[in-house]
Amino acid sequence: MANRTVPRLLQTPAVLLLLFWMLVPLSMTLFFSFIRYVLNNLRRPEWTSPSIDNWRGLGNYQYVWGQDSFWLAIQNSLLIVCSILFLTVTLGIAIAILVNRTFPGRGIVRVLLISPFFVMPAVNAVLWINMLLDPVLGLQGIAVNGINDMIAGMREAPVVGGFFSLWPEFEPISFRATQTSAYAVIMMVTWQWTPFAVLIFMTSLQSEDQQQKEAALLDGAGAWSQFRFLTLPHLGRPIAIVVMIQAIFHLSLYAEIEIVSRGNGNKNLPYYIGELVNNNIGAASATGIFAVILANIVAIFLLRMIGKTLME
């Protein structure tokens, strides 16, 4: 096309906005990561404002690198992200195959299944940690109490009573505690994101080659080998995409951690940064740069994959 000015002009606002969004805050973070910058310091008041005179070089990076809590936060981020990925992908494949057949009420089943994905993260976390998982008042507490009462009742019964008297009293689990809060986060995010995986795998399954499957059936291939050698390879690409998109989203998980435990012993990287921001800006910024590097490692793979299909 002869006239290139108009198309360029049309793209300019979007490009400029994103350029600003990407460059300005990030370069500030980069600058802060090289200086001493703390919000409250009575002894060294000159450190409380950002200035080039407080240059610290790589000192903030060294400080963060040497902190146990930084490594715990990374470990926790990875634990949470990897567990969620494993659960959502396996559950997602199973449920997508389950719903891929036609049966009565399939439309309603789909609607019910996708619903959790649209619940806002704050509500998701408040709902799970209080109404479902609370050890006393939540459904968990009620269920555990019910089971204990039932066992107590069975102890009085003739014949089988002796067997049930061997059973212990069940203890409900407190998911706000240090050791367990990560599991609560994993549970609630898995609940929210499995529908996403199901939706994508289902879309992909609909384009699966049915003739190939019929041929395999005629050759006497069982259900398992059909899945293993036809369906699973077909899902390879969607699985990779689900994994990477979720990795990017879940590496920056925040609201759920905040609501479940206020990061009590269960900080992930964004939460750790959020805490440092209350005082030590230099260290928070250095941690932020580490988080950017971590996200970029994931992002490069994703961009490569999407780039391939882009202009088809």
Binding site: L18, M28, S252, I273, G274, V277, A291, A295, N296, L303
Partner: peptide, 15 residues
């Protein structure tokens, strides 16, 4: 443009 979406929000919180 897509790559800007992958910038972790927490990294630019203080700025």
């Amino acid at each position: 443009m897509l790559s800007t979406k992958m910038l972790p929000a927490a990294a630019v919180l203080y700025p």
